[in-house]
Amino acid sequence: MAVTQALELETTGTPAIPGWRQLLRRAGSFLAVLLALGLLWEGYKVIGQAVIGVVPLPVRPDDNSMPHVWTIVGTLFEPARRGGEEILLIILMRAALFTWREAAAGFVIGSLFGFALGAVLGRFVLFERSLMPYIVASQTVPLLAIAPMVVIWAGRLGWPAWWSVSIISAYLTFFPVTINTLRGLRSPNPTAVELMRSYAASEMQILWKLRLPSALPYIFTALKVSATASVIGAIVGELPSGIPDGLGRILLNFAQYFSTGPERLYAAVFGAAVLGIVFAALVALAERLSLPEARRLE
């Protein structure tokens, strides 16, 4: 009793909201935003059709450029090809799962490489000064130019096509992880480092017991960005690889038929977005499980 009382008097933490009630609330706000976006879309169409010709509009509000929300949702439940049996939703989900496998492999490779690079740069300032411009430059080179090269090189080495997709995906993934690892490893304040020095701790001990734990919140922030980037990398990588099973080919196909069936391209774009969100949410879940709330960067 005395102990609990002291606890209430002396602790300064905020009362914890039960984790999954918070999760439910988050899901609720996500759906609310989705609904608002749908209303905005339909509202633009209604108002746009009333003022067309009078007010210049960026996008034509007709059903060919902007199909109704219910048309887009409806097309998910229709067969994707004439005479086909499977509805578009199933096809999209299978393709998304395929693309996700490539992206996940790329994400893991890219994150590990990004972390190792960040750790090396953090340890040797000379490397940071000399390599950083090239690391930044690597991200300004258009992915569309690099992707075919990677596919051809990987093909010559006899690697399976999806490996090259994962490598392209890793190329987009490593950068945020490197930058944030570097920042995170340098985040402990000088006193925290001096404390270690007063124990005559070795560099390795300072790294493992201080710098790495301090860097974790930064690294998780990077991983959430990288998760979505890895999906983009995989989709772009699928195009020159000629892989027919992923979202890349589907997006390409539907883009060619945009004028006759725009709703299917929108549906596929929506599918790709959902994949990115789900992947990022998985990383966020891993963060929840490994970091207490007070240590998360939001």
Binding site: N189, T191, E194, L195
Partner: peptide, 11 residues
């Protein structure tokens, strides 16, 4: 050593 800030490790 004891500093002005407790410098405890959060994790």
């Amino acid at each position: 050593m004891v500093f002005q800030q407790a410098t405890l490790y959060d994790w």
